[in-house]
C-alpha cells in the first residue's frame, strides 16, 4: 500500500477531501462576511445562524411539504434573504453611523435569539437530511473512493464562489457595490440608490450563507448549533485572509480547510486549534491579513 510520511495514501486523501469540504463552507461563509463588511461595515455575527436557517428551511421543505433538495437550493436562500431584508431595514440600517461594534453586538443578539428559538422547538440534537437520490453512492477513482455528494459539494461551492466573484467584478451591480465600498456618498451623488444597495448586499450575503446551509444539510446533521460552532472558525479565516479581497477570502477558506484536514492525519489533537494558531502567526507576520490592505 502506498504511504506518505508513514500515513496510508487512502487515509491522507480522505482527510484532504474532508478538509476541502470544510474549506468549501469556510470559503462560502467568509465570502459572504467579506461582502457584507465591505459595504455595510458590519460584522454579521448572525451569519452562522443564517447558515443554520438555510439548512432548517431545506429540512422543513422536505419533511413537511415534500419539496426536495434541488428546489430547496433555490427556495431556502430566498427565504433567508427575505428575512435579511426585514432585519436590515428595521434594525441594521439604524446603526450605520455608529461604531461598527454595535453592528456586531446587534447581530450577536440576533444569532442568540434565532438559535434559542430553534433549540426550543427542535432540541439540541441534529435532524438527519437524506442525500438527494441523484447524488447517492460513491465513485472509485482508482486511488481513492469518492462519495459522489461530497465531490458535488466541492464542485458546487467552487461554482458558487466563482459566480459571486463574477457578480462583483463583472456586472453593473458589482461595479456599484465596489464603488459604494470605496466612497458611498459620491456614488449616491451619481444617483445610485445606496440604501437599497446596502439592503440587497446584506440579503445577498445572508442568502449565500443559507445556500451553504442547504449544501451542508446532507453532510452534517441539521442542528440549531451548527452555525455558531462554525462562525468563530470563519472569523479566524477572515482575520487570516484579510477582508480586503473577495478572491483572498475564497482562497484562504479552502487552504485552511485542507490544512485542518491534514492536521487530522498527522496530529489529531491539534486539528481543532490549527486554524487559530495560523491566525496568531499571521497576526505576527502580517497583521492586516494575507490579502488585506494595510491602513
Amino acid at each position: 500500500m502506498t504511504t506518505v510520511f508513514g500515513v496510508p495514501l487512502q487515509a491522507l486523501l480522505g482527510q484532504v477531501l474532508l478538509g476541502l469540504i470544510n474549506g468549501s463552507f469556510y470559503a462560502m461563509l467568509s465570502l459572504g462576511l467579506a461582502v457584507i463588511f465591505g459595504l455595510l461595515r458590519v460584522i454579521n455575527f448572525a451569519h452562522g445562524a443564517q447558515y443554520m436557517l438555510g439548512a432548517f428551511v431545506a429540512w422543513f421543505l422536505l419533511e413537511q411539504l415534500g419539496i426536495g433538495y434541488w428546489w430547496a437550493l433555490l427556495i431556502a436562500p430566498l427565504v433567508v434573504a427575505a428575512l435579511a431584508v426585514v432585519i436590515e431595514r428595521a434594525a441594521l440600517s439604524k446603526l450605520y453611523g455608529l461604531d461598527p461594534l454595535y453592528g456586531l453586538l446587534f447581530t450577536f443578539g440576533l444569532a442568540l435569539v434565532i438559535e434559542g428559538l430553534f433549540r426550543w422547538q427542535f432540541g439540541a440534537a441534529g435532524q438527519p437530511y437524506a442525500t438527494p437520490d441523484e447524488l447517492v453512492g460513491a465513485k472509485n477513482l482508482g486511488f481513492m473512493v469518492l462519495p459522489i455528494y461530497r465531490g458535488f459539494v466541492v464542485v458546487a461551492s467552487l461554482a458558487i464562489c466563482l459566480a459571486v466573484w463574477l457578480l462583483i467584478e463583472r456586472t453593473k451591480f458589482g461595479a456599484y457595490l465596489r464603488a459604494a465600498t470605496e466612497d458611498r456618498t459620491l456614488v449616491q451623488v451619481f444617483g445610485v440608490n445606496v440604501p437599497r444597495l446596502l439592503t440587497l448586499t446584506y440579503a445577498l450575503g445572508a442568502g449565500l450563507a443559507a445556500l451553504a446551509g442547504v449544501l451542508a444539510a446532507p453532510v452534517y446533521q441539521v442542528s440549531p448549533l451548527m452555525g455558531s460552532n462554525l462562525i468563530i472558525i470563519v472569523f479566524a479565516v477572515v482575520v487570516v485572509g484579510g477582508m480586503g479581497s473577495i478572491g483572498g477570502a475564497i482562497l484562504t477558506g479552502y487552504a485552511l480547510g485542507v490544512l485542518e484536514g491534514l492536521t487530522k492525519v498527522f496530529y489529531p489533537p491539534a486539528s481543532s486549534i490549527v486554524i487559530f494558531v495560523v491566525m496568531a502567526v499571521v497576526l505576527l507576520v502580517r497583521p492586516a491579513g494575507l490579502f488585506g490592505r494595510e491602513g
Binding site: F106, F108, G109, A111, L112, V113, G116
Partner: peptide, 14 residues
C-alpha cells in the same frame, strides 16, 4: 434563556 438575553442585546443596541 438565550432568547431573552438575545432580545435584551438587540434592545440595548437599538
Amino acid at each position: 434563556v438565550t432568547i431573552i438575553t438575545g432580545l435584551v442585546f438587540m434592545a440595548c443596541v437599538l
